[in-house]
């Protein structure tokens, strides 16, 4: 089982998200994350799906998704050079003794402190998933009070063909 990243373009119509979600649930696909937002084309949404499965399962996901009438195109970009990013907001316990340490740690990860409270700091980090994971790992001992992750978005690097549409 490997992790695959799919990009799907779909018409921005009511119910599309439900169709996609319902497909994943019904066919028992193991989805790790799913993000959706506007694309460069009006009325076309772009979804990034990260899922686990062997090639045969992923092939099925691609085909089943493509079969939905509102889904315009699906691309498996797992084997292509792609930029893939995730954003995380992490609220971490920060008393007088640990505050500087955490800020230093954040700067090593090129994360930004976006909110400072009496006993906590909120850090924003954008980066490849591995970097997000390791930063979360390092912040853990301080006490993570709240964590919000967007899931991955991905884009194939320029000059590698297979652009969408």
């Amino acid at each position: 089982m490997e992790t695959h990243t799919l990009i799907a373009l779909m018409e921005d119509k009511p119910g599309v998200l439900h169709r996609v979600a319902s497909l994943f649930r019904r066919r028992n696909y193991n989805i790790e994350s799913l993000t959706v937002g506007h694309s460069e084309t009006p009325n076309v949404s772009r979804m990034t799906i990260v899922l686990n499965g062997d090639d045969r399962v992923v092939q099925q996901v691609v085909k089943q998704l493509s079969k939905l009438i509102n889904v315009i195109q699906v691309l498996d970009v797992s084997d292509q050079p792609a930029v893939s990013r995730e954003l995380a907001l992490i609220k971490v316990t920060a008393g007088p003794g640990t505050r500087t340490e955490i800020i230093e740690l954040a700067s090593v990860f090129r994360a930004r402190v976006v909110d400072v409270g009496a006993n906590s700091l909120t850090v924003e980090l954008t980066g490849p998933q591995s970097r997000v994971n390791s930063m979360i790992g390092l912040l853990h001992p301080y006490g993570i009070e709240e964590l919000a992750r967007t899931g991955r978005v991905a884009m194939v690097r320029a000059g590698n063909g297979n652009a969408l549409l």
């Binding site: 119910g15 439900h18 169709r19 009438i69």
Partner: peptide, 14 residues
Amino acid sequence: ITGITHPITKHNYL
């Protein structure tokens, strides 16, 4: 009914 029939129709409309 569109929600209910998503998985049992080829497509549906409200």
